[in-house]
Nucleic acid binder design. Structure first.
Lengths: 204, 204, 204, 204
DNA sequence: CATGAATGAGGTTTCATTCAT
DNA sequence: TATGAATGAAACCTCATTCAT
C-alpha cells in the first residue's frame, strides 16, 4: 500500500516536472535528465516508470488531452435535449476553457504532439469528442441531422485552429473573449444550416 | 550572375532534399548531414547558405507556408465584389487545395513548425491571410461588417483544424471531399450571421 | 534445516535461470535483474546468495567445469593399469561427452569464462584434470613416462581446441563423431611416441 | 592523398589504443571513450571509422587473427613436398610463434573473441588455416591421406588449446618451450598414424 | 529474511558545427 | 569556394547494487 503511494507520487512528480521543463525551455530543452532532476528523482527511477523518452512525452500529452476530452464529454452530456444554440455555446466554452486555463501548458504540448506522432494523438481527442458530440446532437430539440459523423468531425476540429492561434500568439484575453463569442456564433450558425441542408450523398 | 544562378540551384536542391529526408524519416531523422548528402552538396556548402539548422528548417517551412498564403491571397483578390457565399467557397477551396495537394509534405512540416517556434510561423500565415480576407470581405456585395479583424481571424484559423485532422488521420479523399463541402457551408453560414449580429464592442 | 534446503533450492534455481538467460540472449543480455526474475526470486534475495554478479558467473562456470573435471577424473580412475590406447579413448570420450551433451550451455559459458577471468578458470580445469591424468598414466601397462607434468598438460589441453571449434561452428554430429575418433587416434599416437622419446631435460 | 594518409594514421592509432586499453584493464574497462582518449582522437572520429563498439572489436580481432593465419599459410606453402615430420614442426612453430610473440595481446583478445561472437571468428581462423594445411598435406613426401578435411580440422584446432592454456596461465617460457616440442611430437605422430589408419567412412 | 523501488555512475552514440586543406 | 574529417558537448539509456520497508 505505501509502495503504491510512493510510486504514484513519483509518477506525478515526473509529470509535473516534465511540464515545467517544457515551459521553461521548450521541447529542445526537454531531456530526461532535466526532467528527473526537476522532479527530484533519479534518472533511473524515471526509466522505471517510462521505458523511454517517447513514452514519457506521450503519457504527459495523453493526460492533458484526456482532461480536455473529459470537459467536452461533460458539457455534451449536460446539454442533451437542449437547442442547437445552447449546444454550440457549451461545446465552445468547454473546449476553450479547458485549453486556455493553463494556456502555457497547452502551448508547450503542441511541440510534444508533433514529435510523439500527431496522428494517434489527434485521433484520441477527435474520436472521443466526436462520439460525445454525436450523442448530443442526436438529442437536439430543434433540429435533426443525417451524417452526424462528418458534422461532428468538422465541429470538433474547427474550434482547434482558432484556439491554437490564440495560444501561439499569446493573445490578450480581450481577443480571446471576442473569439469565443464569434466561435459560438459560427458553430451555432453551422448547426442550424447543416440541418436544413443535408450534405452530398457521395460523402462518407 | 552565373554564380547567383548556381546558388539558387543549390538552395533549391537543399530545400528539396530537406523535404525528402523529412518525408522518409520524420523530424528525428532530419540531420544536416543527411540533407547535404541527399542534396548532393557537401556539409560545408550547406552551412554557407544556412548559418544553422534552425534557419534551414525555418526557410523550408516559410517557403511552404508562403505558397499557401499566396493561394489564399489570390483567391481573395479574385472574389472581390462577389457574394459572401462565393467568398467562403473560394477561401476554403484555396486553403484545402494548397494543403492537401502534397499532403505528405504538409504533414511532415507540422513537426518542423513545432520545433522552429509555432508562434512566429502561425503568425506569418495568419497575418497575411487575414489582411487579404479583410480586404475581400470589405467588398462583399451582400453584407457589411464591423470588426473585420476578429472575423477574419476566426475565419482564417477555423479551417486549419479540420485540415490538420485530415492530414494527421491520413484520411481517405472521400472524407476530405465531404469535409470541404461542410466547411464551405460553415464559413458561409458564419459570414451571413456575423454581419447581422455585430460582435461585442469590447473586443480588440 | 528446512532453511538450508530452501536455500539450496533457491541457489539451484538461480543457477538454472542464469544459464537460461545466457542461452536466450548471450552474455550481453545477462543481467542480475533478469536472472532473478527468471529464477522467480527477488533481486534482493539473489544478492543474499551472491555478493555480486562476478561471483554468480564464477559459480555457474565452476559448477559446469566441475562436472567436466569429474567426468575426466572418473574415466581416469577407471582406466588405471590399462594400456595407453584404452586410456586415450577413455579420456577423449569423457571430455567430449561431457562437453557436447549440452553443447548450448558450453557454448554460452565461453563468454562467461572470458569475462570472469580465463586464467583461474582454465587453471581449475587443467590442474585437477592433469593430476588425474598423471595418476592414470603412471599406471600404464605398456609404457613408462618421465615428465608426466608436461605430457598431461599437453594432453588435457589438446582436446579443448577441437571441441571448442565444434561448439562454435554448431557442427553437425557427423563431424563430431569423426573428430572424436580422430582425437583418440591422435592422443594414442602421442602417448606411444612420448614414451619412447623422452622430452628435453631443460623443460620444467 | 594527404587525407587518406591522415585517415590511415587515425585508424591505426585507434587499433593500437584499443589493444593498449585492453591490456591495461581487460575487456570490462574497454570503452569507446577510453579508446578514443588513448588514441588521442575525438570520440566522434572513432565513430566515423567504426559504426559501433562491436565493429571496432571485430576489426581489432580480425587484424590479429589474420596475422596468425598468414603465418600459418606461409609456413604451409614453404613445406610443400617435405616429410610429414617437417610439416608438423613448421605448423606448430608458426602458430606458437605468432601467438606467443605478443602473448599479452593474444590473451587480451580472447575475451573480445567471446564477446564479438566466437563462431564467425573461429571460423575465419579455422577455414583458411585448414585450407592451407590441406594443400600442404596433399603434397607430403612420405604419406597419402584420405579425408583431409577432418584431419586438417583436428590438426589446426588441437594446437589452440595448449597455447590458450599457456597464455591464460602466464606460463614461464620454459614450459612454453617444452610444450612446443611436445606438440611437434604429437602432431607428427598423429600425421603418421592417420595416414595408415583411415577414418570411419561414415564421417563427413 | 524477502522485497523491489531507488540510485547514479558511466556507457554508447549522435550530430550540429568548425576549419585546415 | 568547396570539401569533409574532426570535434566534443550532450543526449539517451542500462544495470549492478543498496536499503527502507
Amino acid at each position: 500500500m505505501p509502495i503504491q503511494v510512493r510510486s504514484a507520487f513519483t509518477v506525478e512528480a515526473i509529470f509535473d516536472a516534465c511540464i515545467q521543463v517544457l515551459l521553461e525551455g521548450g521541447i529542445e530543452r526537454l531531456t530526461t535528465t532535466r526532467v528527473a532532476e526537476r522532479a527530484g528523482v533519479s534518472i533511473g527511477s524515471l526509466y522505471q516508470y517510462f521505458p523511454n523518452k517517447q513514452s514519457l512525452m506521450a503519457a504527459v500529452l495523453e493526460r492533458h488531452l484526456l482532461r480536455v476530452v473529459e470537459a467536452i464529454e461533460q458539457a455534451c452530456s449536460q446539454c442533451k435535449g437542449q437547442t442547437v444554440d445552447t449546444m454550440a455555446a457549451a461545446v465552445v466554452d468547454a473546449f476553450m476553457t479547458a485549453k486556455l486555463q493553463d494556456a502555457a501548458t497547452s502551448r508547450a504540448l503542441y511541440a510534444v504532439a508533433a514529435e510523439v506522432g500527431g496522428a494517434e494523438v489527434v485521433a484520441l481527442l477527435t474520436q472521443r469528442s466526436q462520439l460525445a458530440i454525436c450523442d448530443m446532437l442526436a438529442t437536439a430539440a430543434d433540429h435533426r441531422y443525417k451524417d452526424l459523423a462528418v458534422i461532428s468531425f468538422v465541429l470538433s476540429t474547427a474550434v482547434v485552429g482558432p484556439v491554437q492561434a490564440l495560444l501561439a500568439a499569446k493573445a490578450p484575453s480581450r481577443l480571446a473573449t471576442a473569439v469565443r463569442s464569434q466561435l459560438k456564433t459560427m458553430v451555432a450558425a453551422y448547426l442550424r444550416e447543416a440541418a436544413s441542408q443535408p450534405i452530398e450523398r457521395s460523402a462518407l
